[in-house]
Structure formats: structure tokens, C-alpha cells
Amino acid sequence: MSSHTETETVIVGAGPAGLTAALALARYRHRVIVVDSHHAPRNSASQGAHGHIGMDAATPADMRALAGKELSRYATVELREAHADSVRAADGGRFRVVLDGGDTVDASAVVLATGVIDVHPAHVEGFSACWGRSVIHCPFCLGEENADRRWGIVVDNADLAALSPVAFRAWTGDTVAVCPASMPGVDGARTAARARGGDLVTGTISRLHHRRGSLYAVEFDDGRVLERDTLVWTPRQRQQPVVARAIEELGVAGDARRRVRRDAPPVHRRHRH
């Protein structure tokens, strides 16, 4: 049987952002419900989450467990394992979060801390096996663990390709930008990259050669092979369904990627009853 709960704030997503927000609100004795599904989080492939003082190199699971223990000290915080299906307008200018089991939670504020979904390129064999290990999207997160290796920088922007030898010099002196042959400005970017100690190659990647997620070569669709140990590659991303639905349900201004615009008018003025 479904249930209905009233609180002050609902936080959708129990990653570092959502849990930090919960702790800050708990310190104000604010009543908070943190809703997070049982599915593996976006950073589950990472062998260690870095850059958080006191928890550097802790696994994502370790961080969540520690955060849960710390939040359990506060009587005003509830961690609820459920999937948030939608966020709607409720009476009195409040919000209603509908959960997958039919339960509902009304709140004065909703924090959408879901992050996004990384869409792995289905045509690239080995991408998922290397993801979060030797294929990284964030050098700040995993650059140290991939330092002093041969890096490939997968980009489709000439300016970024030209700057890649400089941008990643803190971690490696061996960079090759991998770009589409049709990329505007490709010849000038190659010249600039080589002048800075790097290089640029063009082609479509079809396969990553690896040993248990440890990359050692990139294969192109024409059969060429480029020896690389690390790829910096930000795949296409899509919005979490609950955020896309919230934009529609609440009439909030969103951009082309279905993200809430930072300059969007306050949502309580845009409720549709």
C-alpha cells in the first residue's frame, strides 16, 4: 500500500553532491528526505573517488557508507531507497515527488542532485570495460592514477586538440589528439599540437585493446592501430528521466540537453495547477 509523507526538502540523488547538501541542511535542523535508487551510481566504475579531503582514494561505496553513518546522527534526515519517478506541483506552492512504488513525498523544496547518464558509444568494443580505469572523462579525478603514460585525447574541437599537449602536461608529456577527419580546422590544430610537443591523428575509433580494463592500443575502423595507455574521452550524456519530466511537469525553462537553465525563473511562479 502506498504512503504519503510531508517534509521540508527532498533531495533526489545520494552522490557526493546530494549527501553534502543533506548534511548542510541537517546542521540547520532541517527535515530532509534523501531519495536514491538501488541501481549502481554513475561513479560505480571508479576504483576510487579522489579530491575529497579525508577520503582521498576511498571507493564510491565507501564514501556512501561513511556519509550514511554521519547522516544517521541527525534525527531530521531520512535516507530512502527508492526511484524518483517525477516531481510535480502540489497544493500551497509545494512540490510532490512520486516514487516508483507509488509513495509520494511533499516538500517545500526539491534538490535535483541526480547527475547525468553517460552514454557509452555502442560501436566501440572495449569502451565499457576500460571506463573509469584507463578511459577517463576527468583528469582531476583519475589523472594521477594514469600519470606518465601515453594519452589519447578524444575531441571534436580544433582549439581543444591544439591545446591538449599543454592542458594535460601535469600528467603526461606524450599526448595525441584523436579527432574526426571532418573536424573544421584540423590541419591547423595538428600543426599547433606538434609545435607544443603533441600530435593529432584523425579517424573513427572502433575498438579498444585492453587487459582487464587496462588500455594498451586504440584501433580505428580502417584497421590502423595507435598505441595508447589512457584515453581522455567524455562520452555523450543524457539527462536523468526524473529531471526531464520535472522540466515538463513544472514548466521550468530547460536547454537543448534537457537541463534546468541556471537563469530559469523561480519554479514556484511557474506551477501549473
Results as ranks from 00 to 15, higher is better:
Arg261Cys: 15
Val225Lys: 11
Arg224Ile: 09
Ala246Trp: 02
Val260Glu: 02
Val242Ile: 14
Arg261Ala: 14
Pro265Ser: 11
Arg257Phe: 09
Arg262Thr: 14
Val252Gln: 04
Arg245Gln: 13
Ala246Cys: 08
Arg245Thr: 02
Leu250Met: 04
Ile247Asn: 00
Ala253Pro: 04
Arg238Trp: 09
Ala253Trp: 12
Val260Lys: 06
Glu227Tyr: 09
Thr230Gly: 10
Val242His: 04
Val260Gln: 04
Thr230Glu: 11
Thr234Ile: 10
Asp229Ile: 08
Gly254Asn: 01
Val232Lys: 00
Arg258Leu: 09
Pro235Tyr: 06
Gln239Met: 15
His268Gly: 07
Asp229Met: 11
Val243Tyr: 02
Pro265Phe: 06
Thr234Trp: 00
Arg238Asp: 05
Asp263Glu: 14
Gly223Ala: 10
Gly223Phe: 07
Gln239Asp: 01
Arg259Lys: 11
Thr234Arg: 05
Ala264Tyr: 09
Arg258Asn: 08
Ala253His: 14
Arg236His: 11
Gly254Ser: 12
Ala264Asn: 09
Gln237Cys: 08
Leu250Thr: 03
Ala253Phe: 07
Pro266Met: 07
Val232Pro: 05
Val243Asp: 00
Leu231Gly: 02
Gly251Arg: 09
Val267Lys: 01
Glu227Ile: 03
Pro241Ile: 01
Asp263Ser: 09
Val225Ser: 09
Pro235Gln: 07
Gly223Met: 09
Trp233His: 06
Gln239Cys: 13
Arg269Leu: 15
Val225Trp: 11
Arg269Cys: 13
Asp229His: 13
Leu250His: 00
Asp229Thr: 07
Thr230Pro: 11
Glu249Ala: 14
Pro266Phe: 07
Ala256Trp: 03
Val252Gly: 08
Gln239Arg: 05
Leu226Ala: 13
Ala253Ser: 15
Ala246Ile: 04
Pro265Glu: 09
Val232Cys: 03
Gly254Lys: 01
Thr230Ile: 12
Gly251Ile: 10
Thr230Asn: 08
Pro266Leu: 11
Asp255Gly: 08
Asp263Ile: 05
Val225Ala: 07
Arg228Ser: 10
Ile247Ser: 00
Asp255His: 03
Glu248Phe: 10
Pro241Asn: 05
Ala264Phe: 11
